[in-house]
Amino acid sequence: MAPWPDGVGRRVLAEVDSTNAEAARLAPDLSGPTWVLGLRQTAGRGRRGRAWQSAEGNFAATLVMRVPDGPAFAAQRSFVAALALQDALAEATRRPEAIRLKWPNDVLLNGAKVAGILLESSGQGGTPGPLCVGIGVNLAQEPDAGTLEPDALAPTSVLSATGIRITPEEFLDLLAPAFATWETRLTTYGFDPLRRAFLDHAAKLGEVITARTAKDSLTGTFTDIDADGALVLTGAKGRVVLPAADIFF
């Protein structure tokens, strides 16, 4: 296990409404990047305001950090988080071949959703505010599939998929160093190494998928992720670049 990263804080809370909300509240008084881990989360949320169910024993944490380069660069931390989750889950389960990354913000274990990522930020007058990188992992339990949207990917948990028990605190000890490693690669070498690493582990690369935006639904072959992190589909309309979408298999 890698050591805890230098200069990164750690707060473990017995209960919290949302780790992203708590991280945002703490941000003005923090001197550096800090992980906020909630052992019980009562009002977790996912992308586009969806509820995120966080059962007892699951992982709910947020890294709050300053990203001075603007929204486009802040969004690249979704890739940092995904690759860190890949590494942490591989170390926890010893099954790296079972883990895949689903663009833009989910992680799969044996083809089912085990983790999700939510980035939130606020700022004023064009000045970027603190970035909250929220991460939820089904360590002990997966949500009831009947409570999910009809076309949602089937959920799983580390315990049910592998029989391995790991506590939220133990998982944070794996995730924080992995995140720090990928963050250093991003700030040192730029986005391309992360893009290539993500593609190495991307779910359904080279296969036909459906991408839904707020206005449209497109089906095509997942061919690439571009230099800005956008999804590239090739289909009846030719090459289509999608900066944001939900994708379905």
Results as ranks from 00 to 15, higher is better:
residue 1 M to K: 11
residue 2 A to H: 14
residue 8 V to F: 14
residue 14 A to R: 14
residue 15 E to C: 10
residue 17 D to H: 14
residue 24 A to Y: 14
residue 25 R to D: 11
residue 28 P to R: 06
residue 29 D to S: 15
residue 30 L to H: 08
residue 32 G to A: 10
residue 37 L to I: 02
residue 38 G to I: 00
residue 42 T to M: 11
residue 42 T to N: 06
residue 43 A to N: 12
residue 44 G to L: 05
residue 45 R to C: 09
residue 47 R to F: 07
residue 48 R to A: 10
residue 51 A to H: 13
residue 52 W to M: 01
residue 52 W to N: 00
residue 53 Q to C: 13
residue 55 A to T: 07
residue 57 G to W: 06
residue 58 N to Y: 09
residue 59 F to S: 04
residue 60 A to I: 04
residue 63 L to Q: 03
residue 64 V to E: 06
residue 67 V to N: 10
residue 67 V to K: 09
residue 68 P to I: 05
residue 69 D to A: 12
residue 70 G to F: 09
residue 71 P to N: 09
residue 72 A to T: 12
residue 75 A to D: 15
residue 75 A to Y: 04
residue 78 S to L: 13
residue 78 S to F: 09
residue 81 A to F: 00
residue 82 A to P: 05
residue 84 A to K: 08
residue 85 L to G: 05
residue 85 L to R: 03
residue 88 A to E: 03
residue 95 R to I: 05
residue 95 R to A: 12
residue 97 E to I: 00
residue 98 A to W: 05
residue 98 A to Q: 08
residue 98 A to L: 10
residue 98 A to Y: 07
residue 99 I to P: 02
residue 99 I to N: 00
residue 100 R to I: 00
residue 101 L to S: 08
residue 101 L to W: 09
residue 105 N to A: 00
residue 105 N to H: 02
residue 106 D to A: 05
residue 107 V to Q: 06
residue 112 A to C: 15
residue 114 V to M: 01
residue 114 V to Q: 11
residue 119 L to Q: 08
residue 119 L to R: 02
residue 121 S to N: 13
residue 125 G to H: 13
residue 129 G to H: 02
residue 130 P to N: 00
residue 132 C to I: 03
residue 132 C to W: 09
residue 132 C to K: 06
residue 135 I to A: 08
residue 139 L to V: 12
residue 142 E to L: 15
residue 142 E to H: 13
residue 143 P to G: 07
residue 143 P to C: 11
residue 145 A to W: 12
residue 156 T to V: 15
residue 159 L to P: 08
residue 160 S to A: 14
residue 160 S to H: 13
residue 162 T to Y: 05
residue 164 I to C: 01
residue 169 E to Y: 05
residue 176 A to D: 04
residue 180 A to H: 04
residue 182 W to K: 05
residue 185 R to W: 12
residue 187 T to A: 04
residue 190 G to R: 01
residue 191 F to V: 04
residue 192 D to L: 11
residue 192 D to C: 07
residue 194 L to C: 01
residue 196 R to M: 07
residue 197 A to F: 02
residue 197 A to H: 06
residue 198 F to C: 02
residue 205 L to R: 13
residue 219 T to F: 06
residue 224 D to V: 02
residue 224 D to P: 05
residue 225 I to R: 04
residue 232 V to D: 00
residue 235 G to A: 11
residue 246 D to A: 15
residue 247 I to A: 11
residue 248 F to A: 03
residue 249 F to Y: 13
residue 249 F to H: 14
